[in-house]
Amino acid sequence: MMSFALTRLLRAFATLMLVITFAFSILRLSGDPAIAVLGPMAPAAALNAFREAWGLTEPFWVQYSKYVLSIFAGDFGDSMRDGLPALPLVLERVPATLSLTIPSLILTLTIGIPAGIVAALHRNSLLDRTVILAAVAGFTVPSFVVGLVLVLIFSVTLGVLPSGGQGSWLHGVLPIITMSTVSIGLVARYSRSAMLEVLNAPYIRAASAKGLKWRDVIRLHALPNAILPLLTIIGLMVGSLIAGSVVVESIFSWPGMGRLLIISVAARDLAVVQCILILITVLMVCANLTVDLLQAWLDPKSRNKAHA
C-alpha cells in the first residue's frame, strides 16, 4: 500500500510538472508577449521596459527555472490587464464556481447512481430502456443547447427564472440544472454497467443459490461491489464539471472562474490564463489521487492495476 501510494504521488507530481512546463512553453513560444500585450505599434522603449519587467531578456533555462520556482512560491505573475497579482484575482472567483459545481455534483450522484442501479436491476424492462434513452440524450445534447433552451422556456417565455447573473438562489437554478444534465447521463450509464457486471458475477449466483433473499443479495453483495468502480467516475466528474462550468458560466453570465478564463483568453491576459490552467490541474490531480488512494484502500485488488 505504501509503495502504491508513493508511486501514485510521484506520478501526480510528474503530471503537475508537465502542465507547468506546458504553460511555460506556450507562454514563451507563442511569439513576443511584449508585442502581444502592448501591440505592434508600441514604442521600442516601452517594449524593452516590458521585456525587462517580465524577465524576457534572460536565457531560456533561467526563465524556466525562475518560472517554476515562482509558481511553487504561489506567484503566478500579475494580470497584464490591470496589474494586480493573478492568484488572488482567480481565487476570488472560486467560491462562485464552487457554488455551482458542488450542488451539481450532489445532484448528479443522487440522481445518476440510483437511476443506473434501478435500471440494471430491471434489465431490459421499459424502465431500463427509458433510463438508457434519457441518459444517452442527457450526454449527447450539448450543455449550451440545454442552457439556452432552458432560458428560452423559463426566462423568455414563462418569465419565472432569471436568465443570468448572480443574486438570489433562483439565479442558480438554471445553471445547476444545465451543468448536471450531462453528468447525470454519464453517471447513470456508468452505474448501470457497473451494477450489471456485478450482477453477472459468480458470487451473486452463489449468494442467491444458498437461499439468501434477493433483496439481501443486492444489499449485502451487489451494492458494495458496484459502488467501488463508481469511485473512479467521481474523479472524472470533477473534470467534466470544471469543463462544464466554463460553458455554463459563459451562458448565464455567472462571475466564476470559467467566465474569467473566457474573458482572459479573449483579452490574451496570459498570467491569469496560466494561473487558472495550473490551479485546475492541481485540483484534478488531487481529485484523481484521492480517488485512487481511496480505491486502493477499499479494494486491495486495484493496487495491482496501478499501471493498467
Binding site: T15, L18, G239, A243, V265, N288
Partner: peptide, 24 residues
Amino acid sequence: ILMFVDFQAALPFIIMALAVSAFV
C-alpha cells in the same frame, strides 16, 4: 508516453484548448 497520457487525462480538453488559443 504514459506520463503524457496522465497529463492529458488530468487537464480537461476545453481548458487546454482555451489556453492554447489564448496564446496562439
